[in-house]
């Protein structure tokens, strides 16, 4: 998993674990959670791919 952000949040793992040890229902919750993350990731990628590049001039003119 790579959720784009660089900041590491160790509590996220312990929160997910609580669902994982919560039996079959918990595993379904984790599945839905991961699906949401994947969808969120794709949407962010789509927004980024649709954005237009702004050309930046490489020439600097002194006045």
């Amino acid at each position: 998993m790579n959720f784009m952000l660089a900041y590491f949040d160790p509590t996220a793992g312990s929160l997910l674990l609580q669902a994982l040890v919560g039996g079959f229902g918990g595993i379904m919750v984790v599945g839905r959670y991961l699906w949401m993350q994947l969808r969120g990731h794709e949407q962010v990628q789509a927004v980024l791919s649709q954005s237009q590049e702004i050309p930046i001039s490489t020439h600097f003119h002194s006045r």
């Binding site: 998993m1 790579n2 959720f3 784009m4 952000l5 660089a6 900041y7 590491f8 949040d9 160790p10 509590t11 996220a12 793992g13 312990s14 929160l15 997910l16 674990l17 609580q18 669902a19 919560g22 229902g25 918990g26 379904m28 919750v29 984790v30 839905r32 959670y33 949401m36 993350q37 969120g40 962010v44």
Partner: peptide, 21 residues
């Protein structure tokens, strides 16, 4: 999980809530 899970854009707590925790 701590080493593999990086922070998602949203809150893990609210995302788990929405996922049916």
């Amino acid at each position: 999980l701590e080493s593999k899970t990086q922070a998602a854009p949203g809150s893990t707590v609210s995302d788990l809530q929405k996922s049916g925790f």
